[in-house]
Nucleic acid binder design. Structure first.
Length: 592
RNA sequence: CGGGGCGUAGCGCAGUCUGGUAGCGCGCCUGCUUUGGGAGCAGGAUGUCGGAGGUUCGAAUCCUCUCGCCCCGACCA
């Protein structure tokens, strides 16, 4: 109304000062932190619920999220650690487009292979594009255009960028989204040795990155999956809610994703001959599963030879497995030498075994049989009789049937022997936050990305690729570090280092003290969130616990009279009183 | 993709079976009191009942279609 020029200027200056506080430290009243008591019912896992409740993220569509200021700060913390360590390791940051022309994907043959996860779109000229789920094609193209000589190698280029994978079933919030931020690095080499050296370099770099993030994690051997290549490691954050099972030796350093984990080959030729009983068919009405059959016949599941009928690009075949073990399709695919394998549908089972599914067995079966090593020990076993409601008992290998091939086809279980030493394997769960691959020449060959070596000979680049899920790392940290009240951030990922809670903002002494401490800490390079809201103490404490900043300073009038301030670590139950003069020093110690 | 479930106020839910003026708790706004662990009292605002079509005098409720979201499933041998 009577807003004259000077008022306007004052307001402008005030506004600019407020903006300035949006740097390292913040006032709660100025920051957009919409915390909520009840998480929406669609949030299933802890990290998802807590990020929503703490006002860090909001869902926009299935598997697609907004990052609010607090969430973004955490994301940036992870990014910066990754960036610093990648740079330190000699990699260089680039930025590639999110929208990629189909030509590149057609060239690598992945346009047809990658499937529905690849979100395809057309531009106004009806040309095909996709949203990049990963960038091997783009980087290979980028490098082949301008790198001609071995003298320009090696190169390690990375970006931190948004990826899109149209997941079948996005879930668990940031843990399995469709749109997500990833650091992906690609290295190019003139020789195998150089590529392997870089793989080790990245392995070490990843160890440093996740250590700096304050995570408990494990590097495990992994299957190379869809990206392809010769060998790879995954970096798993250990958490009950992890989507992956990993096997880890209790004695040596061996650790592997269960998809890939091996055990000592048992029982080759160890079957006890001479006690073989007569093969007998028994009636097992409606007994299909291992539990049903073993319960009905009163034998242990170990005595069963589970017969699974598989379909593949090479046709149908049978897989034999001891009753108490699980099939590992990754291993099966490899040993069956197939492009794809799939459990056969009822119709195919019927065609191959002449019986409804649930009664398949190797005796008299007229298809290829591939058997897990585990059945070599089974004497007088139980199998389906390839006939409805019937099983054979006293089935013996060699006498009653033969397998075309023995192989390691099962998932390892708790207590299996370590393949490397005399230790035992433990099974634990993990969240995959990083994955490194030695790619070899898979992409450089198909995309004709070549350089001239010192002999003037044309050779394809030898490549490696190295990914880290940025958002997933933040989510994994929460899965690993939380209690019933909220998040417990490790210092390096925390959105702020210190959370100042003035108990009563209307008490001038309290607020003055809070302001002074705020300024002192800020001057010492510490990031602070000060809860200057005119709210009851209880509400502020609840929000502080939920948001999970590692150090909380509670400023109340009574303690202030003794020149003391309460300091509480989020991860500990009890608070301690600190003299005002010592606060900065104390906190500096905790921070490092 | 198959199976199941859910869409009602910002969030959590009731109401749907059996059609008859849209509710509860939390949150939000105003005022007073309160003020170290999600306060009390009083007053107040807020809904295309996911969307479209149909049945009916009348639809959140019944029917058809559609969209969105969530969960389970590739271990039945």
């Amino acid at each position: 109304m009577n807003c004259n020029r000077n008022d306007f200027l004052d307001k402008f200056v005030e506004h600019m000062l407020n903006i300035k506080t949006q740097g390292e430290s913040m006032r709660f009243t100025k920051m957009f932190i919409p915390t909520i008591k009840d998480a929406p019912k669609d949030a299933e896992v802890i990290s998802h619920q807590m990020m929503i409740r703490a006002g860090m993220i909001r869902k926009v569509a299935s598997g697609i999220y907004n990052f609010l200021p607090l969430g973004l700060r955490v994301l940036k913390k992870v990014e910066n650690i990754v960036r610093e360590e990648m740079n330190r390791a000699g990699a260089q940051e680039v930025l590639m487009p999110m929208v990629v022309p189909s030509e590149l994907w057609q060239e690598s043959k992945r346009w047809d292979v990658y499937g529905k996860e690849l979100l395809r779109l057309k531009d106004r000229h009806d040309r095909d594009f996709c949203l990049g789920p990963t960038h091997e094609e783009v980087i290979t193209d980028m490098v082949r255009r301008d790198v001609r000589s071995y003298r320009q190698l090696p190169l390690n280029l990375y970006q931190i960028q948004t990826k899109f994978r149209d997941e079948i079933r996005p879930r668990f919030g940031l843990m399995r989204g469709r749109e997500f931020i990833m650091k992906d690095a690609y290295s190019f080499h003139a020789s195998e040795e150089c590529a392997e050296r870089e793989y080790k370099n990245m392995y070490e770099t990843y160890l440093r990155i996740f250590e700096r993030c304050g995570l408990r994690f494990k590097a495990v051997e992994a299957d190379t999956g869809q990206i392809g290549g010769s060998f790879s490691h995954e970096f798993m954050v250990l958490a009950e809610t992890g989507e992956d099972a990993i096997a880890s030796c209790n004695k040596c350093k061996y650790a592997a994703n269960v998809e890939k984990a091996e055990t000592k080959i048992q029982g080759q030729g160890a079957s006890v001959k001479g006690q073989e009983k007569t093969l007998t068919k028994v009636s097992t009405p409606n007994m299909k599963s291992v539990e049903e059959v073993s319960g009905f016949l009163k034998v242990s599941p170990q005595a069963l030879i589970k017969t699974l009928i598989y379909d593949s690009d090479k046709g149908g075949f049978a897989v034999l497995l001891r009753g108490d073990y699980e099939i590992n399709e990754t291993k099966l695919k490899k040993h069956a030498d197939a492009e794809w394998v799939r459990l056969a549908d009822d119709e195919t089972v019927k065609k191959i075994t002449n019986a409804p599914s649930g009664f398949a067995g190797p005796v008299g079966l007229k298809c290829g049989i591939i058997a897990d090593y585990s059945i070599q020990n089974v004497v007088n076993g139980v199998t389906g009789a390839n006939e409805k409601d019937a099983h054979f008992v006293n089935v013996n290998i060699d006498r009653d049937f033969k397998a075309d091939k023995f192989a390691d086809l099962r998932n390892v279980v708790q207590g299996d022997d370590c393949p490397r030493c005399d230790g035992k394997l433990e099974i634990m769960r993990g969240i995959e936050v990083g994955h490194i691959f030695k790619l070899g020449t898979k992409y450089s060959e198909t995309m004709n990305a070549v350089f001239l070596d010192e002999n003037g000979k044309e050779k394809p680049f030898i490549m490696g690729c190295y990914g880290i899920g940025i958002g997933r790392t933040a989510a994994a940290s929460i899965e690993q570090n939380h209690d019933k009240d909220g998040i417990i951030w490790p210092m390096p990922l925390a959105p702020f280092h210190v959370h100042i809670v003035p108990v009563n903002v209307n008490d001038k002494k309290v607020m003055d003290a809070a302001e002074n401490i705020y300024k002192d800490l800020e001057g010492a390079g510490i990031e602070i969130l000060v809860d200057d809201r005119d709210e009851r103490a209880g509400i502020k404490f609840k929000d502080a616990d939920l948001i999970g900043i590692p150090i909380r300073l509670t400023i109340g009038s009574k303690n202030l009279e003794n020149n003391m301030v309460e300091m509480k670590l989020r991860k500990e139950a009890n608070a301690l009183l600190v003299n005002r003069a010592e606060i900065v020093e104390k906190i500096k110690n905790f921070k490092s």
